[in-house]
Amino acid sequence: MTGVETTPDDRAADVEFELLLEAIWRRYSYDFRHYARASLRRRVTSAMRRLGVERMSLLQEALLRDVDLFTRLLTMLSVPVSDFFRDPAYFTALRQDVLPMLATYPSLKIWVAGCSTGEEVHSIAILLDELGLLDRALIYATDINPEALRTAEAGVYPQARVPGFTRNYQAAGGTRSLSDYYTAAYDRVVFDRRLRARVAFSDHSLATDAVFAEVQLVSCRNVLIYFDRVLQARAVQLFHDALVPRGFLGIGSRESLHGFATARSFEVVSREQRLYRRLA
């Protein structure tokens, strides 16, 4: 216990943290100022350990002049954790209830926001393929982590993860064998180029960028949890504006639209699977 009365908010480390985010924003135009604090703080602290930096103010000083250091930090701050068919029931719902409704459009446009290393994109491409819709589809896959986007674009994953992918694929009601979609090469597997032929990967931030296309489905899972309420509201508004009337929105299994002004423009398709539909 200390002699000086402090509240958690006025401690030096909090000030350093805020200045760091401000410096990143002003120097590199990446806006982490409205990210959920607790987990971002944890990632900054662990990045400092990996980079061998003692204090946040020293990290800030180094970052301002060292672009390469920022590039490395960026990949550590974003959370490129993903899985094939994560929460299989969500993908079952897409397969049964959402994608068939979109089959009536001459061309299907889907936005996977915060696509990370591409597992979700590949999962959706596989669903489209099995429904005979892949050739008519265009998927926009966006993220702020350039390294993750490169992995997504390559479609290469460690062999060791394949049993997990396969289990999820089957649990999600896959109609073939997942091995139909990849070739094994040493300790890795490469997913078919065909699955990515209709995918446009690009750098896009939900924090700072605008709507870039009109789509019939937005899938943005486990990205909103990293934002505070202000930034969440911005992202949900973007999704709304990108969607055609009656377009679908899917979010992570523990996320919700509850309490956002924009939520009034959506109806619930499946509460359990966190699927919503834009009102006309």
Binding site: P8, D9, A36, R37, A38, S39, R42, R43, V79, V81, N222, I225, Y226, R254
Partner: peptide
């Protein structure tokens, strides 16, 4: 993961 934020809310992460 489950975390407690400064503002008295809970936060989740998949870190």
């Amino acid at each position: 993961h489950l975390l407690i934020e400064h503002d008295g809310t809970l936060a989740l992460s998949v870190d």
